[in-house]
């Protein structure tokens, strides 16, 4: 994608990472694993954005965390809290209504062009 669009694309993507995290962490996950999962699902995120974001969401009460020391490498696992699930539902609804709104925009343009 050309560089001049990059800032606009970033603006548009901002916030989608939060939603993606909340949805993915309905099943518990840890930092690097989540980073990879996001990437695979098309939400490419920088590690230095994601790690602080997880802590912020935890501080705001949308995620809970737990240290898993059973394996050789102790990892901090995050899980979406009930509050986080409500937030995720609200954001998802908003996203759906935005999708509809944007679709109607493009529909309008095509119908205007037809005149």
């Amino acid at each position: 994608m050309s560089e001049e669009f990059e800032t606009h694309l970033q603006e548009l993507r901002r916030g989608t990472v939060v939603l993606a995290c909340l949805q993915l962490l309905r099943t518990a996950g840890y930092g690097y694993g989540l980073l990879e999962a996001l990437e695979q699902r098309g939400f490419a995120t920088d590690a230095n954005t994601l790690y602080p974001l997880l802590r912020r969401l935890e501080k705001q009460g949308y995620l809970t965390s737990e240290w898993n020391t059973a394996e050789t490498r102790p990892r901090k696992f995050y899980r979406t809290s009930p509050d986080g699930q409500r937030l995720a539902d609200t954001l998802t609804e908003e996203w759906a209504s935005l999708t509809g709104a944007i679709a109607s925009l493009t529909d309008d343009t095509t119908s205007t062009e037809e005149h």
Partner: peptide, 20 residues
């Protein structure tokens, strides 16, 4: 109060990334 927690988490995350 958060230093140790962040340190441990970063260690794990960086180790994971290096491993990959």
């Amino acid at each position: 109060e958060t230093q140790n927690d962040v340190r441990a988490e970063l260690e794990a995350s960086i180790a994971d990334a290096i491993e990959a």
